[in-house]
Design a protein around this nucleic acid. Structure first.
Length: 483
RNA sequence: CGAGGUGUAGCGCAGUUUGGUAGCGCACAUGGUUUGGGACCAUGGGGCCGGAGGUUCGAAUCCUCUCACCUCGACCA
């Protein structure tokens, strides 16, 4: 009990040695993903997909609780539709994949593989919407999209990724804004409660906002290496698309009006975030709420009379409330299994051997701290429940502490650079709002504006002088290098 | 797009300089002994040496061309 964890998983490069290599090792050794024959496209393996399903489930439930329904739109979008909203085309055109042939013949009009679905959805909405009585439209789809990225990394940036995209229509700008903020709130809520990832939220600068949006709001998480990860965005699209697609309806005054439009999305990128926020040198550390296996039962000396029976009995008891797996694979030592499941990030390992059975107990080992405790088999479900709750909370708190330690403030560019090199992470700094300052900071430090926090989280730093030009600045922004 | 590098068993690599029957470790399979933090012994299966052409009696190895991937840079919601 309380034995120190000195063994390191052999296959994984330590984080401190090479963070990108650590990440690559973790995702491949734990069988989350594999590389496909097509560059930039990844295969999500069962263990990785199971995590996605749990994330999906948590978000989908909240979407439905807030009145949204799911739907499905086609993968292919005619060129003429994609190009209807000018800013949008300009933003996405460079990374669109095109279908030019079908059935052995060249197509009259080429078809885009959707990089996002605003255009095709709006084209259909324009057919369906007639009256204010039908509003709001609250719809969402779970699908994959394709963006031809030059450099890719599994989960973080791939040419195809899985996501959900919500697309809503409203009568008033106020309602659209409310929806945009509500969805950002839900994104953050689940990210923090289920993924145990503390988020910084706010608005994107014009430079960073979605192509075709009035305003983009984002949640940003900080990774172990001090880089930020844009983890979910919610856009207030105003009437850009509804006008471009001529979505009109008869309003309460019996006049033709354009509705107000929002869209919002989270993707499999969240999985990359979980890995880089919670993982350690032994591999994955999964928050209990999204761990495909919450408790792995390892029989010790399983050939001995009664051990396997007991293991299965415990599994059956725990299986009523938790996701449990018994690793009864023959021919592998318990030590090997310990390491294996630790690497895969299972929150609790339950060891059961002849000694335990004799004493009516078992050993529970926590993945997050490595701590081992002995518990009675009599109230095992309660013990596991308590421990899972504690692990979930501990992971969030650890991540929050890490983010706070990696968050600094800067008065000027020199201090900004110094902070980023000595303690990479978020830099909070005043910004005058000028694009030129934003560009200069990016140029000199590699950091971009991750978000401009909302009023309640705004601060005035250094007498409100812009970190770049020194002129008066109204807003504090979070800066960071980002994935 | 610029510079560099690598393609040999599922994975990681040696062999290429100096041409001569394709090797090692891990993984996998079978049998046995083991089992509380990566056990061990024995046996076994698995290869168009990225592709095409050339030189040669003979090519993983030398030459030419090609394809793919990786790293760094550039670019990028």
């Amino acid at each position: 009990m309380g034995k120190k964890q000195t063994n390191q998983v052999k296959e994984i490069t330590p984080m401190a040695v090479d963070f990108p290599q650590w990440y690559t090792d973790v995702i491949s050794k734990t069988e989350l993903v594999d590389y496909s024959p097509v560059k930039g496209f990844m295969v999500i393996r069962p263990y990785g997909y199971a995590i996605w399903e749990l994330i999906q489930g948590a978000y989908d439930k909240r979407f439905k609780e807030t009145g949204h329904e799911n739907m499905y739109f086609p993968l292919l979008i005619p060129e003429s539709l994609l190009t209807k909203e000018a800013e949008h085309v300009e933003g996405f055109a460079p990374e669109v994949a095109w279908v030019t042939h079908g059935g052995g013949k060249e197509l009259a009009e080429k078809l885009a593989v959707r990089p996002t679905s605003e255009t095709i959805i709006c084209s259909m909405y324009s057919k369906w919407l007639n009256s204010y009585r039908q509003l709001p439209y609250l719809y969402n789809q779970w699908c994959s999209v394709v963006r031809w990225e030059k450099t890719t990394r599994p989960f973080l940036r791939t040419s195809e990724f899985l996501w959900q995209e919500g697309h809503t229509l409203h009568e008033t700008p106020e309602e659209a804004q409310e929806e945009t903020m509500q969805m950002l709130g839900i994104y953050r809520e689940i990210a923090e409660s289920h993924l145990a990832m503390p988020m910084v939220v706010g608005r994107k600068s014009d430079k960073e906002k979605f192509a075709g949006a009035d305003a983009t709001y984002t949640m940003e998480a900080l990774m172990h290496d001090g880089q930020a990860l844009q983890s979910g965005t919610s856009h207030n699209l105003g009437q850009h698309f509804t006008k471009a697609f001529e979505i009109t309806y008869l309003d309460r005054n019996n006049e033709q009006s354009f509705p107000y439009h929002t869209s919002w999305g989270v993707s499999t990128r969240l999985i990359g975030g979980i890995i880089m926020v919670h993982g350690d040198d032994n591999g994955l550390v999964l928050p209990p709420k999204i761990a495909p296996i919450q408790v792995v039962v390892i029989p010790v000396a399983q050939h001995k009379e009664g051990v396997l029976d007991k293991a299965w009995e415990i599994s059956k008891t725990l299986g009523k409330d938790f996701r449990v797996k018994v690793d009864d694979l023959d021919g592998y030592s318990p030590g090997w299994k310990f390491n294996q499941w630790e690497m895969k990030g299972v929150p609790i390992r339950l060891e059961i051997g002849p000694r335990d059975i004799e004493n009516g107990q078992c050993v529970l080992a926590r993945r997050d701290t490595g701590e081992k405790i002995q518990v009675s088999l009599d109230n095992i479900s309660q013990a596991v429940d308590d421990l899972l709750v504690e692990i979930q909370a501990n992971l969030f708190n650890k991540a929050l502490k890490m983010r706070e330690e990696k968050t600094s403030t800067a008065e000027n560019i020199d201090e900004f650079k110094k902070n980023l090199s000595e303690n990479p992470g978020f830099v909070k700094a005043m910004w005058c709002g000028e694009r030129s300052c934003e560009d200069q900071i990016k140029e000199e430090t590699g950091a971009s504006i991750r978000c401009i926090p909302f009023e309640e989280e705004q601060e005035v730093l250094y007498a409100g002088k812009c970190v770049c030009c020194g002129k008066p600045a109204q807003k504090m922004a979070y800066f960071a290098r980002a994935y």
